[in-house]
Simulated assay, not measured.
Amino acid sequence: MITEKEKMLREELYNATDPQLTAERHKARNLLQQFNNTGPGDSDLRFFLLQELFGKCDKSLQIEPPFYCDYGYNITVGEKVFFNFNCVILDVMPVTIGNQVLFGPNVQLYTATHPLNWQERASGLESGKAITIGSHVWLGGGVIVCPGVSIGDRSVIGAGSVVTSNIPADVFAAGNPCRIIRDLSPEARTLTV
């Protein structure tokens, strides 16, 4: 028989009140509470707690507390990634973050979603879709990334944007919904010089 966790990780409707999932969220909350209570001089303790929490992270990872997530184990982080204060990752599905990514304060990544049909939604079932963020990306303060979105390498997302669809590499995008404003590729730079 398929478990609720297996359903969750297959992007199927699942019951988040399942005892296994509830216990895993509680474990994450305990690690986050410890992490969020650390001080600026506790870098070794912070890294230890993040290693316990995340699926994969590098020692160069910097997160300014407070930070929040659902499970942690679905988060994979590359090298030299920085999260400013009060970031949230709802990681019911994998969240993959490349190298040298900058997150402004209050950035929120949501893999979790709910059915549009009110009767399904009233049943308490939910689902999720993975998020991928390439390398050298900068997400300005207050950016919200919705379920299933990918953001390409070297792109910049303007502060306060709501990213509802994929953003290619080498662009500046902003707004609600987020849309491409300008090409940042090397070719575009040579054309404007």
Rank of each mutant, 00 (worst) to 15 (best):
K5A: 07
M8Q: 04
E12K: 01
E12C: 07
A16K: 04
P19R: 03
P19V: 14
T22S: 15
A28H: 03
N30I: 11
Q34L: 07
N36L: 07
G39R: 03
G39A: 09
P40G: 11
G41H: 09
D42K: 00
R46F: 08
F48R: 08
L50P: 01
Q51M: 08
E52P: 09
C57A: 13
Q62R: 11
F67Q: 08
F67H: 06
C69G: 05
D70Y: 14
G72H: 02
G72F: 02
G72V: 12
Y73R: 03
N74C: 10
N74W: 08
N84G: 05
N86K: 14
N86A: 13
C87E: 06
L90N: 02
D91F: 07
M93R: 01
P94L: 15
P94D: 15
Q100P: 05
Q100Y: 10
V101R: 00
V101I: 05
L102M: 13
G104P: 10
P105V: 00
N106W: 10
L109I: 15
T111V: 14
A112W: 03
P115A: 03
P115C: 04
L116D: 12
W118G: 05
Q119T: 13
A122V: 08
S123C: 13
L125Q: 08
L125W: 12
G128Y: 14
I131G: 01
T132L: 15
V137I: 11
W138M: 12
V143T: 03
I144G: 02
V145E: 08
P147F: 06
I151W: 01
I151S: 01
R154G: 10
A159K: 00
S161D: 04
P168C: 08
D170W: 11
F172M: 06
F172T: 06
A173I: 13
C178Q: 01
R179Q: 14
R182F: 07
D183W: 12
L184N: 08
S185K: 02
E187S: 07
E187Y: 14
A188V: 04
V193S: 06
